[in-house]
Design a protein around this nucleic acid. Structure first.
Lengths: 174, 174
DNA sequence: TTGCTCCTCACGTCACGTGAGGTGGC
DNA sequence: TTGCTCCTCACGTCACGTGAGGTGGC
């Protein structure tokens, strides 16, 4: 139904009838984490998630707890962490001498990540404003059928010449 | 001062005295776009930006307009576009028969990108909340020096067992 | 002369994508 | 039997990173 490696969104019927099953196939894992078969297998080969001993045609079987781990890993990837950084975070607790120090260490690292996330959100909002400005720049051209397109656009004064967004320069005034 | 390929933030003295120069070196381009020498050269080799004919020791020279183009390209990359998608956007205007159609086409594509950006921001905010929840989950452990660390954490009830964030399960309850 | 910045290969990296070719249960 | 989902290689991709080794102007 779906070529391997593509995004999969279908759910099997048993599942939607009976809710989330106890044992998950690779495909289940991919669907419920918005990833792909390849990603699930890759993360397993990297030791980030663990499947049970293979049975029944060498198919992987994952317990539900591994799905939650996978979803958390996907979240951290979204936050911009590399797989190595995620591995380091997972291993952090085991390297600390006490719960207290582990909690403090993890808190410090995660706080740093939250700061980075907020900077990233700020950047995306800035770019979003940039593109919004570009849309406004392009407004006067919507009804323009003047001759000399596209070269004449360069010297055209219908578009407010001052304060054009950088994207407008890139995509229109070239 | 900076190894090649690393992020460069220094500004040369002439520049800070005289403002932005008319002709920019590869290093100037990298600094003012928050990228690297490698990226500037790579984008030039890909035809995304253009340098003048080489003189003086085969060094590249960029006019100021190319810096603005580079900055716009960096913005679009931040927005999640691939270099190919950016090339397609740059070429779009030239493939349209009139200013009107070009404006409409560009508007439609950029609107789609803005929608994607807003979805991305929503995702990052969700992950940010997740990590915030993880910090709260870890609070009770800051003063914990109970024996049996780390294995005893699994059955510990000081941490509120219900509604722990997925990241807490990944990073603490394993 | 010494630093600094620039240059060109060219191999490496990260996180998967993408077939090819095959198996197994309903 | 037919579809569907799963499997294992193994090469490919994208956007650069990272040296190695060298040049040129102040």
């Amino acid at each position: 139904m779906f070529p391997e490696g593509s995004f999969m969104s279908a759910r099997n019927e048993q599942e939607s009838a009976a809710g989330l099953q106890q044992w998950l196939t690779t495909g289940d894992m991919a669907r419920h984490s918005q990833t792909t078969l390849r990603t699930v297998r890759f993360y397993e080969s990297e030791g980030l998630i663990v499947s049970q001993a293979r049975e029944r045609g060498n198919h992987r079987r994952f317990p539900l707890t591994e799905l939650f781990k996978l979803q958390a890993i996907v979240d951290l990837r979204e936050a911009g962490l590399s797989l190595q950084e995620i591995k380091d975070l997972i291993g952090l607790k085991g390297q600390c001498p006490s719960a207290s120090s582990a909690s403090c260490e993890l808190t410090e690292r995660l706080s740093g990540r939250i700061d980075e996330l907020e900077r990233r959100v700020a950047t995306l909002r800035r770019v979003r404003e940039e593109l919004g400005a570009t849309l406004r720049d392009l407004e006067p051209c919507r009804d323009c059928h003047a001759p000399g397109f596209p070269s004449a656009c360069f010297g055209c004064d219908r578009m407010l010449e001052t304060n054009l967004s950088r994207a407008t320069h890139l995509l229109w005034k070239n």
